[in-house]
Structures are given as structure tokens and as C-alpha cells.
């Protein structure tokens, strides 16, 4: 799935890195606890989160993630946007709640990071 499709499925606003919207991604995780994100290293490439601070960008960067979706319409500040641009991470803001956003992406074929 391309990041562009994710933004469409979630009715999300693209906040930065428009040039990376055609990047392919294969799995995602939804989490507000960054240490939990860091605890399961898989090749997940999208982070859905309600946590809006610099550490959500840093965590995605450490995990080589390509895209962060902020749920419930949350918006990052300029410092976060600048960091995301510097590290090449697409930021999306969706009005959906976490559960709904994850469900829609999963239904559309974007896998989670199961231990199977």
C-alpha cells in the first residue's frame, strides 16, 4: 500500500514530505507508548499514534518508519514538522480515532506486526 492510499482511507491531511507519498509500506502499528513501539522491532513502516511530541518523530526515525499518522485530528508543531522533513518521514493528521483508523487500514489490507 502506498502512503497516498493511507491518507485517502483515513481522510487525512498531509502535513509534510508530499514527495514521499508514493512510498510503499507493508505494515503498521498503533501505539501511544513509544517504549512499546521500540520493543518490537519488525519492518513496520507506519506509526499511528495520539502522542504528539518530538519523541514520536524520534521513535519513528529510530525504527526506520516512513510515515506517522496522528489520530483524532492532532497536529504537530513546527519543531516536529522540521524534524520530520529532515528525517524524511511523512506526517498525516486524521480526524479518526485510533481504533477506527487502525481498523480501516487493516481492513484495506495493511497488516499489523503480529508475531506469527
Amino acid at each position: 500500500m502506498k502512503i497516498r492510499e493511507i491518507s485517502e482511507i483515513l481522510g487525512a491531511e498531509v502535513l509534510c514530505c508530499h514527495e514521499l507519498l508514493d512510498t510503499d509500506v507493508h505494515s503498521a502499528c498503533g501505539c501511544d507508548l513509544m517504549s512499546d513501539v521500540l520493543a518490537f522491532v519488525k519492518d513496520q513502516s507506519v506509526l499511528l499514534t495520539g502522542l504528539v511530541n518530538l519523541q514520536s518523530i524520534r521513535t519513528a526515525d529510530m525504527m526506520d518508519m516512513k510515515c506517522i499518522v496522528f489520530v483524532r485530528g492532532k497536529k504537530p508543531d513546527d519543531a516536529m514538522l522540521n524534524l520530520a522533513v529532515e528525517r524524511g518521514i511523512v506526517l498525516l493528521s486524521s480526524p479518526l480515532r485510533m481504533y477506527i483508523a487502525c481498523g480501516r487500514l487493516y481492513s484495506a489490507g495493511l497488516a499489523g506486526m503480529s508475531e506469527e
Binding site: L33, M34, S35, L38, A39, N53, Q55
Partner: peptide, 16 residues
């Protein structure tokens, strides 16, 4: 509330 402090830091460091 900042996304850390869940008691995973040191275990993660050891794990990786």
C-alpha cells in the same frame, strides 16, 4: 504522558 516511563527502557537496551 510523553510516551515513556513504562519500564521498558533497560529491558529494550538489553534485548537489542
Amino acid at each position: 504522558s510523553l510516551g515513556f516511563g513504562a519500564g521498558m527502557g533497560l529491558p529494550n537496551m538489553k534485548r537489542y
